[in-house]
Design a protein around this nucleic acid. Structure first.
Ligand code: MN
Ligand code: MN
Ligand code: MN
Ligand code: MN
Lengths: 226, 226
DNA sequence: TTATTTTTTTAGTTTTGCCTAAAAATAATA
DNA sequence: TATTATTTTTAGGCAAAACTAAAAAAATAA
């Protein structure tokens, strides 16, 4: 697979996670930052390689093979992100671009040795699950902060939006993975939340809250095991 | 710079190390495994970017800028090779291919952090010097085993040929970096050497001996500091 | 010095991944 | 349902990096 093919495949996989419907040409075009006509070209190529199912004008879905290959690319991306943060002291908002390149280095041995070197991490710096070498993902239980209850303590376990813009914003608000968050109040009109982080209260919009994942198990128990 | 441009530039640099003359189109073609006509195309492009000096039919030399850029690519290659061997437990004959890809990841911060993580190594797994971030190389004193004297103890400090074929051969002969070698006899006809490694003697051809670097300082002193 | 061989360059193609502009199909709205 | 708007595909092109075949220049040998 070429770098471009791998990028398309990964993006189709990520788009498929949020929906059970076919993925549209335009949705892919937006993500890969190319024109729809270029996407049509690539779709045909991936369909010929039996990585996606494609019917003209009907969008695409991944085949079993496509899903597996996509997971391996995501495994590489997330392991490299973990390496950059844990070993090379990068911050979580700096790793995306570099991992976007590193994920295309083709050596199974490299990635499996890297996995071992990092001690087989299950989550990347953004709280996303790292598939194992068979493409199996052990998904951790998580829920969006926007869906959480009032007056319970939660732990931030991940972000949905991994753009450096959003991550820097979270740094400013002193929110990162592991941060304990409690919802004090929910504004009914626009679902703005007033939250408490370490005895200071802040206001966050619904857009922010629906890009933050929290654990959905009993918070006291988790605090102990943490 | 594209990956291809970087590969050409690096190879022109490495060819220049062995000669003060211009580098020929065919010499480059051999190394990059492309046809001479393809090399001519690329040469023109590199000349336009002022990375090499080029006169039709006269071969090429690197400009100051070209030398610097080539050294930075070599720095990246050798740091990644060191990472693979020191951190991911690869053997010295397995790293070339992978580093050949990794060297093209474009992030100065990445490579400088990697350098720090590895503790600013001065030599890669094959005994080659790693340029610093300014492209400065502190060349260690070394000499080919084929030029060495009889009945002195030397330490193997590097290899000239880094092909996995040669490196595996050396593994078989129990020769690696740090191995103490003594020349017992030199056959005048073809310069075959009888050498002693840890009390066992072996015969090695001149071709082997002229691809092995040894220290050329006082061996006893080095044994202490080792 | 002339003839032959080797090296290098030019000319013309191919493939990959992108593009624009226009046509065709589908979806939305009146 | 007919019209309009949006989405997707087709057609034709471009740049990068490779190729083959042929021409031109340089090097070597007779
Ligand atoms: Mn990528
Ligand atoms: Mn991530
Ligand atoms: Mn390379
Ligand atoms: Mn090396």
């Amino acid at each position: 697979m070429t770098i471009s093919e791998e990028n398309y495949l990964k993006i189709i996989y990520l788009l498929s996670e949020n929906t059970s419907k076919e993925i549209s040409t335009n949705a892919i075009a937006d993500m890969v930052k190319a024109k729809a006509s270029s996407v049509t070209d690539m779709i045909k190529k991936l369909a010929n390689k039996e990585l996606i199912n494609y019917e003209k004008y009907q969008g695409v879905t991944l085949t079993e093979l496509g899903i597996y290959k996509a997971k391996i690319i995501i495994r590489r991306q997330r392991l490299w992100e973990t390496f950059l943060v844990d070993k090379l002291n990068f911050s979580w908002d700096e790793v995306h671009e570099i991992a976007e390149e590193l994920e295309h280095i083709k050596s199974e041995k490299l990635i499996n040795h890297l996995d071992a070197f990092l001690n087989f991490p299950r989550l990347d710096p953004h709280g996303d699950s790292i598939p194992n070498q068979d493409g199996i993902i052990y998904e951790s239980q998580k829920v969006l902060l926007s869906e959480a209850d009032l007056n319970k303590k939660y732990i931030c376990v991940g972000v949905k939006d991994t753009s450096s813009h959003f991550l820097k914003f979270l740094d400013n608000k002193k929110i990162t993975i592991g941060t304990i968050i409690e919802i004090i109040e929910r504004e009914n009109y626009d679902n703005t939340l007033i939250i408490k982080i370490e005895n200071t209260t802040t206001t966050i919009s619904n857009k922010i809250a629906s890009n933050l994942y929290i654990n959905n198990t009993d918070p006291n128990q988790l605090l102990i095991t943490n």
